[in-house]
Design a protein around this nucleic acid. Structure first.
Length: 613
RNA sequence: GCGCCUAUAGCUCAACUGGAUAGAGCACUUGACUUCGGAUCAAGGGGUUGUGGGUUCAAAUCCUGCUAGGCGCGCCA
């Protein structure tokens, strides 16, 4: 990556300056090379000299000058010292060569190596399987999928995993709901459970089950029928989820069953590890995790008070939080939960799950994508990870804020139990997959998104999604036209035409360009808009690095728009077809490199790159 | 009450994690092509980065006091 190269050159220059006695001895500091805000100032700038003022006991300007004196940039860039800054500008020669490099890299352009040899898991989605995929989960999976794309591009080996919450009492409620609808469908009087799932989709599931399986479950003992229908229903829900995900171009490598953590005995094996450290405490019949082994206080205060929220409760919570130590129930007491299989809490599963990720499967890093409603669970996951003797820096939690869905100028409230949900399918039907993904990606994950369905539809002309895709379609149009000109031999003879295939007999997807000879070594792009476009293309690697390290996928949308804008400026200023042959040839290459870059960026975002619109 | 997150142009948001004169889109005003796609482009106005203090060569960014909002604080998931 060019930025790293420049940084290495500067570091070397500092060392050389020290060796030559130009600069005093000091340890090489951690410094950055970045883009100045004003692009006319420089392509890259380093402010090391300012950082070094103290250790070197010299004025920043002098330091910068001495670094610059020792800087050998090998024709990649020129350097200018401005008040302590090292301002670097890439040379037209270097930029011109990069166009060839991009075309050579092709679909791999944008790939970097920072993750080479490391395995990362990105767990996302993971919505309760008791209903269809909602728009709310849409943000989750789009973030997760895009982050996974970026990590892959950064060289990591990535596994995409969906955690299926198929344990716990919600599944029982679900089974009861399906059973009730099933019975009702068969005209058997069966009351609908109070805390059941009221959505229409349960009715639909019941209908399908009746269709496929007939009446046989009516003869089962009720508890068994509910369990069986629940399982059947979950499977059907997950099939639906997979289908919905496919519509937005998302696939998972693995669906991990929460229940399997218990069935495999893994959870049981976790307990001794924590117990040995004195972090598991029996309290009022329940099993608690106490981060520092301190006695459990919550239950006591609960007994003291009469049921109202009062000072006693508040006081004890403050006390617990003052020590900042996590205390959480792992297994509920039989007195509270009669059914043994429902006693482990969600947290219990988390304990075994993080172990499974980091130890059993040995991922170097595990990324969790969680909605803001789970933000309060972060401390206990961190605490228990630490307690298990694992490095907490190996888990990363992406907490995103919820979206508000607007329709007809009104906020749409959703609830799975109540049944008034808006599914991801609904939204995709209305605005399409590309627009859905773009909107859900376009903001930093800790910004609330207002997804106005009417606006996204109505203003589709001015939607940035289409702006970016339009640039790609326009490029394809130019390339098509170039091929037509080349194949019809209009203008020049085919063997001297810059766009003509070197070997006309060998067909290839883009014959005019794929086999085009290299630009002459002396050729250099000159026009400011050409050079600006190439610089913008080169940023792709930096954006990939940024998203892969910061795990903030919205940078792709910003970059895509900026790239499309830069291309538009080039398109306005520089004619491609019909110029002098070497100019047209060079610009065609630049246009093709832009297409590659734009298409890759769209692919990283999970969007299509249309050739026509 | 406590914890996490947020506050930047009229609106929606960026700002590469401490760097130079804080940028885009929308909206508004005014313009542009007989040529590669007008789903385009150009120009213009618009800012005490919620607020008070602090840290240093340098703060939208870090610390801190307020203010406002979101989420969470269960033997729910």
């Amino acid at each position: 990556m060019i930025r790293d190269q420049l940084k290495n050159h500067i570091a070397q220059a500092i060392l050389d300056a020290q060796a030559a006695g130009d600069l005093p001895r000091f340890d090489l500091p951690v410094f950055t090379v970045d883009h100045p805000r004003q692009t006319q100032v420089a392509d890259y700038a380093a402010s090391v000299a300012m950082q070094l003022a103290r250790p070197a006991k010299l004025a920043p300007l002098q330091i910068a000058q001495r670094i610059a004196r020792n800087l050998r940039l090998d024709g990649i860039a020129s350097c200018e010292v401005v008040s302590g800054y090292l301002n670097l500008r890439l040379t037209p020669y270097y930029l011109t060569r990069q166009v060839e490099a991009i075309l050579e890299a092709g679909e791999r352009w944008g790939n970097i190596a920072i993750g080479a040899g490391k395995r990362v898991q990105v767990e996302h989605g993971s919505a309760n399987p008791t209903g269809p995929l909602t728009v709310a989960s849409g943000r989750n999976v789009v973030i997760g999928d895009t982050v996974a794309n970026a990590l892959e591009a950064a060289g990591y080996q990535v596994q995409r995993e969906w955690y299926v919450n198929d344990a716990g009492n919600q599944i029982r409620h679900f089974g009861e709901s399906v059973y009730a609808r099933y019975a009702q469908r068969l005209a058997v009087d069966e009351p609908f459970p109070d805390d059941g799932y009221r959505g229409e989709y349960i009715v639909e599931i019941a209908r399908l089950i009746v269709e496929r399986e007939g009446t046989r479950y009516l003869s089962y003992p009720r508890v068994e029928a509910r369990r069986a229908l629940g399982k059947l229903g979950i499977d059907m829900m997950m099939d639906g989820v997979r289908a919905s995900l496919a519509r937005v171009g998302i696939r998972f490598d693995n669906f991990f069953s929460e229940r399997s953590l218990y069935e495999s005995g893994l959870f049981e094996r976790m307990l001794p590890i924590l117990r040995e450290k004195g972090l598991l405490i029996e309290h009022e019949g329940a099993l608690w995790f106490s981060e520092d082994g301190s006695p459990i206080r919550k239950g006591e205060s609960r007994n003291q008070q009469t049921g109202d929220v009062g000072p006693a409760t508040a006081g004890s919570i403050i006390e617990n939080q003052k020590s900042n130590k996590v205390q959480a129930v792992v297994i509920r007491s039989p007195g509270v939960v009669p059914e043994p299989s429902e006693r482990p809490t969600y947290f219990a599963s988390d304990i075994a799950y993080v172990w499974d990720k980091l130890v059993v499967r040995g991922f170097d890093k595990a990324v969790y994508v969680w909605g803001e409603d789970h933000q309060g669970d972060v401390p206990r996951l961190m605490a228990v990870t630490r307690a298990l003797g694992l490095d907490t820096s190996r888990i990363v939690l992406l907490i995103y804020r919820f979206i508000t869905l607007m329709r007809n100028g009104q906020e749409v409230r959703m609830g799975k139990r109540a049944g008034n949900i808006v599914t991801l399918d609904d939204v995709v039907d209305e605005v399409g997959s590309d627009a859905t993904r773009f909107v859900l990606l376009s903001r930093s994950i800790d910004t609330k998104i207002t997804f106005d369905l009417d606006l996204v539809k109505k203003q589709s002309d001015e939607n940035p999604v289409y702006y970016v895709q339009y640039a790609h379609a326009r490029i394809c149009s130019i390339l098509r036209k170039a091929e037509e000109l080349a194949s019809s031999g209009v203008g020049e003879s085919s063997d001297t035409h810059p766009m003509a295939p070197a070997n006309a007999a060998a067909p290839s997807p883009t014959p005019a360009l794929a086999s085009n000879p290299r630009l002459p070594g002396s050729y250099e792009f000159q026009h400011p808009s050409e050079l600006a476009l190439i610089r913008k293309l080169l940023e792709l690697e930096e954006v990939v690095e940024q998203v892969a390290t910061l795990l903030q996928p919205h940078h792709f949308t910003t970059y895509a728009q900026s790239l499309a804008t830069t291309f538009s400026a080039f398109y306005r200023d520089c004619r491609v077809l019909g110029e002098a042959p070497e100019v047209t040839a060079a610009r065609l290459k630049l246009v093709q490199a832009t297409r590659v870059t734009l298409a890759r960026t769209l692919a990283l975002m999970g969007m299509s790159a249309p050739e026509k619109m």
